[in-house]
Write a protein that binds this DNA or RNA. Sequence first.
DNA 1: CGGCTTCTTGATCAAGGTCAACCTTTGTGG
DNA 2: CCACAAAGGTTGACCTTGATCAAGAAGCCG
Lengths: 247, 247
Amino acid sequence: MRATRHVPCKTCPLRQQRLFKPFSEQELRFVATLKTAHVTVPANQPILELGAQSGALYTLFSGWAFRYLRLPDGSRQILDFLLPGDLIGLQPAFLGGINYGVTALTAVSLCVLHGAAIDALFDGHPGLVRALVATLLEEKRRTDRRLAVLGRRQGPQRIGYLMLETFDRLVQQGLDAGTECPFPLRRRHLADALGLSGSHVNRSLDELQARGLATIEDRRLLIRDRERLAAFAGYTGLNELMGRLIL
Amino acid sequence: MRATRHVPCKTCPLRQQRLFKPFSEQELRFVATLKTAHVTVPANQPILELGAQSGALYTLFSGWAFRYLRLPDGSRQILDFLLPGDLIGLQPAFLGGINYGVTALTAVSLCVLHGAAIDALFDGHPGLVRALVATLLEEKRRTDRRLAVLGRRQGPQRIGYLMLETFDRLVQQGLDAGTECPFPLRRRHLADALGLSGSHVNRSLDELQARGLATIEDRRLLIRDRERLAAFAGYTGLNELMGRLIL
DNA sequence: CGGCTTCTTGATCAAGGTCAACCTTTGTGG
DNA sequence: CCACAAAGGTTGACCTTGATCAAGAAGCCG
C-alpha cells in the first residue's frame, strides 16, 4: 500500500456522477475532514485482511476489488465485486471486528477516511445518513437477488446474471455504454463468486458463447445479445436508485 | 389480516430483551407515535405482496414469517426467516417499490407502523439511526455467511447451518436454551431457503439424524450434538451484537 | 530460455434433481 | 365424531449437473 498525491474532495470526479447524492457545501466540508490520505494497492494484494483491526475506512477511487469470506474448509466465497465509489470497511469501522477480506482485483487507488470519525455522521448530517441507509438497502436488494441466483439457477445462468449486473453497474457509473466493458475477473473469480468449479465455469462460458449471448475476451466482456441473455439468465435489471452515498 | 387490541409500546415485552437497544424517554415517545395498529395474520397468508404499494411498516410481534423472491421461472427463493422483533417492509417504505414478498409461516401478530413517518427518524434521533444502521450491518453479516453456505456447502451442511443459526437467533431473543426449540418450517421451506429439492432435503435430514447431530420432530428442532453439528456445518456462531433497533 | 500461473479439455464419479407411487397428517364440513 | 379431501412426507429408480482429477497448451513474467 503506497501513499500517493491527494485528490481533493471538492473536485472529486466520482462525485460528479448522477449515481451519487449531490452534497451541500456543509456536507462537503464534513466529508473533506474525514479524508486522511490517498493510497494505491497493486493487483492481487490485500486491502483489508481478516485478522486485522484497522478501523480504516476506504472509498474505492479507481480499479476493481472483491470482498470474500474464507470458509473453515479453506474454500473462498467471493461476496461482491467492488467498483469505484464503493465504500470498503464500513462494517468493521462501525461494528468493530472484521469478518471478511478485501483484495484488489486490478491495481486500485483508494481514499483513506478516518473510520472512527464517521460516527459524527449521525449527529447533524441527516442528509448523509439518509443516503447511507438508502445505499445499504439498495445493496441488500442486490444481495437478495444474488442469493436467489445461487440458490436456484445453474452455471451458465449464474454467469450470465453476473455479467449483466456488472455491466449495468458500470453503466450507472457513467461508462458510455456500448455493448462491451472491461472485465478483469479470471475464471477462478467467477468460480468463487458463483459457487462453481473452475472447469465448469469454462463449460458454462462455452455455452454462453455457443448460444451467441456473450463472451469474455482479453479481459473484456462482450454482450452479443442483451435481450436474450437477460431472458436466459433471468435478469431483470438494476433498480434505478436515488442518490447513493459516496464519502 | 385482522385488527386486535393495541399493545402499548411503553410496556412492550419484546423491548425488554437484552438484544434490543434500550430507549430513552424521548425515543420511546417518538416510536409510540409511529404505531397505528396491531393486527394478526393466519399461517400461510401474505403479509406483504410483491405487487402492492402499501407503504406500511411492521414489527413482527409474535410468530414466524419468511421473506422470499419469486424468480421468472416461477420458483421461489426464501431469503430469510423473520422472528419476533424483526422489521418487515423497511425497504419498500424507504426506497418505495417492493421486490419481495413476506408470508406468515405460523399465525403471527404485527405492530403496524406509519411507514412514511420513519423519515422523521433521521432528524433528531441519532441514537435510533445508529441502532438502525447497526441492525442493517449485522444483517448483512448474516447474509454474507448465508451466501457462502449456499455457494460452497452441500445439502446436509446447509441444513445444519440453518438449524444452528435459527436456534441461536431464538436464544438471543431470550428463549431459555436447552437443546431444542420450536421449528415450524416444512420440508418445502427448507428446500426453498437452501436451494435444494424436496427429496434431497429428506435425504439430508436422514443423514443428520444418522450421524446423531440433529432431528426435526413434530415441529421442533432437537440438537443432539451441538459441538459436532457446528463442526460439520462449518457454523461459527452469531455475532454478539450491540443494541438492535426495534420499532 | 525456464518456471510461473492460467486456460482448456476429457474421463470419471458423486451430489442432487425429477418423477412417481404410496403413506401419513391435518383440516374441513356434515 | 367421522369421512373425506388436501397437503405434506417418504422412498426408490433414474438421470443430469457439476465436482474432481489429470494432462497438456498457452501466456507471461524474470
